[in-house]
């Protein structure tokens, strides 16, 4: 059944007609055209679809778009802008935290939520915060170093 969805997407209010069974990841990619949020598995396994809803990391692939009314959804497109990378994006870029890059948007969103909550996390806290995000390329070490570098940048 279609319903009217009004939410804030990356700081901008918008309204769309969506069906009840539309997943947030489909809404973001197919309706809003924001393809930075990735779909890497068939439900909840990989973390590539991680976005922030009211500041908390959530799986866009397990969230119904119709449940996001009135909420603030942030995707990788809302972090930094072309030519002006955020501190996490810069750190992933410089410390080689991204290889194929498929997990990177989810990693950065999960790390962004962590750094907002805890600007100076230790390694165990970084590992815990990213423990739902899988990466097939980096072996994770460079990702953790990237988050550490970003945290260091801020202080």
């Amino acid at each position: 059944m279609p319903m009217i969805l009004s939410l804030t997407l990356n700081g901008r209010p918008r309204t769309d007609l969506v069906s009840d069974n539309l997943l947030l990841v489909e809404y973001l990619r197919d309706v809003a055209g924001l393809t930075g949020t990735k779909r890497g598995c068939d439900g909840g396994e990989c973390g590539a679809c991680t976005v922030l809803i009211d500041g908390a990391p959530q799986h866009a692939c397990l969230t119904l778009a119709s449940r996001c009314g009135g909420r603030h959804v942030e995707t990788i497109e809302g972090i930094g802008s072309p030519g002006r990378l955020s501190r996490l994006q810069r750190a992933f870029h410089e410390k080689l935290g991204a290889q194929c890059g498929f997990c990177t948007p989810g990693m950065i969103m999960a790390a962004e939520a962590l750094l907002r909550r805890n600007p100076d996390p230790n390694e165990a806290e970084i590992r815990e915060a990213l423990s739902g995000n899988l990466c097939r390329c980096t072996g994770y070490v460079k990702i953790i170093e990237s988050v550490q570098a970003a945290a260091g940048d801020a202080t």
């Binding site: 909840g44 973390g47 991680t50 908390a56 990391p57 799986h59 969230t63 739902g132 995000n133």
Partner: peptide, 9 residues
């Protein structure tokens, strides 16, 4: 249970 992102919802 699961990972931190799952536990949030």
């Amino acid at each position: 249970v699961a990972g931190p992102t799952h536990r949030a919802s």
